[in-house]
Amino acid sequence: MRHSCRLQRASLLALITISSLFATGCAAANRTDTPTPIYTNVPRELQKTMMPAYVIEPPDELLIQTVNNIRRRDDKLLPGDSLRILSNTTIPILPEDSEVTVSFKEIARAYLIENDGKVNLGPEYGKVEVAGMTIDEAQNAVLDHLNEIFINPPKLSVELEQLGGKQVVDGPHLVRMDGTVHLGVYGSVVVAGYTLEQAKMLLEEHLSQYILNPEVNVDVSGYNSKVYYIINDGGGEGDQLYSLPIKGNETVLDAFAQVGGLPTIGSKKKIWVARPAPAELDAEQILPVDWDAIVKGGSTRTNYQILPGDRIYVAADPMFASDIFIAKVIAPFERLFGFTILGNGAVRNIQQGTSFGGGGGGF
């Protein structure tokens, strides 16, 4: 009986506490948390503005293509390059010479620079080292070598075969954390902070060290640095945050289409766009959104055009927020009641066991 009275008193005290908390939770949930809006003339659906020239930032992805990859004449020759060598003087070709023998005596074709850095002119003339030389230096080296064979100096022509550059710069390139794009054997170029046209000029200037009159095309293949955010109030259970890349033409309605619409607990009457401003201005730009007017009436008045850095905030519906608040408050009492009921049941079992057992064991 004594345990039953204690349980009743505890239950009554808990109900009083819960009622008080319920009133507090409802008041908190119904409080208007929307910041005071600052109405400005901003772009919206049917009245959009054009974005300024795109400024490259990490981690954007750039599509870089070079129209011309022909090596410069003063570039150093490398193993794997091919030289076209022509000479007007050769070892005399005899009528009885076979086709293979004739090919050995002629110097009028393309010769590959081998792994040892030399071109092999055939068994009749031997090898000449040319790797690390310019084309003009290679021509002089081949001419000096042939002068040791012929009495009369031959007339010689040495040209680089049109094999392209060391590496074709063609494809997507990630803007790294240091603001550079890596061009393989051609090194790196800083492009962050520049527009696409400026980046094109920088890349052409850099590649001109290795490629003859390079023409570069630069475009954005991955818009990764310019984003906007959607924040869904969880009503006391944490906020959901989405970061979405911006393409430059989205409105509020487009933004919610990317995440499947409003969340279940989201309030249709407490949605706004918070637009960042420079820190020195110390001002907020809050754009309230009339959801029903946009989706049901086709209104464009609050269907704002989204700009980079915008935060679209969706507050929780007051009823859901109250329910979550009360659930969080009641949870400790539910555990307390559970322990109390469990203890009371155990005591009763012991008492019943004692009465039936005549002083024996309770269980």
Rank of each mutant, 00 (worst) to 15 (best):
C5M: 13
R6N: 13
L13Q: 15
A14K: 11
A14M: 13
T17E: 10
I18P: 02
S19M: 15
S19Y: 10
N30E: 09
D33A: 11
T34H: 06
P35K: 13
T36S: 11
T36D: 09
P37K: 10
V42E: 13
R44K: 12
R44E: 01
M50G: 03
Y54M: 04
I64H: 06
T66Y: 01
R71D: 05
R72G: 05
G80C: 00
D81W: 02
D81L: 02
R84Q: 08
N88E: 09
T90K: 00
L94T: 08
P95E: 12
E96R: 07
E96H: 08
V100C: 02
V102M: 03
I113F: 05
D116A: 06
L121A: 06
L121V: 00
L121W: 03
Y125R: 08
K127T: 14
A138L: 05
N140S: 14
V142D: 09
L143M: 11
D144Y: 07
N152Q: 15
K155F: 02
L163K: 12
G164Q: 03
G165I: 07
V168L: 15
V169A: 09
D170T: 00
D170M: 09
L174T: 07
L174F: 08
V175W: 06
V190L: 14
A192F: 06
T195R: 00
L196Q: 00
L196V: 08
L196P: 00
E197W: 07
E197K: 04
Q209L: 10
Y210L: 00
N217G: 12
S221K: 06
G222H: 06
N224Y: 09
S225V: 02
Y228E: 02
N232M: 11
D233E: 04
G234I: 04
G235F: 04
G236R: 04
E237W: 11
D239E: 14
Q240E: 15
Y242N: 13
L244V: 09
L244H: 01
P245W: 07
F256M: 03
A257W: 07
V259P: 03
G260P: 04
K270I: 00
E280A: 13
A283I: 15
I286T: 12
P288L: 11
I294N: 00
I294K: 05
V295K: 06
V295I: 15
K296A: 10
K296N: 15
N303S: 07
I306H: 00
L307D: 03
P308W: 05
G309C: 08
R311N: 14
R311W: 14
R311L: 15
A315G: 12
A316H: 09
M319I: 14
M319W: 13
M319R: 12
F320W: 15
I324L: 14
F325S: 14
F325C: 04
I326G: 08
K328E: 13
V329K: 10
I341V: 15
L342I: 10
N344S: 12
N344F: 13
G357K: 05
G358P: 05
G358I: 08
G360C: 03
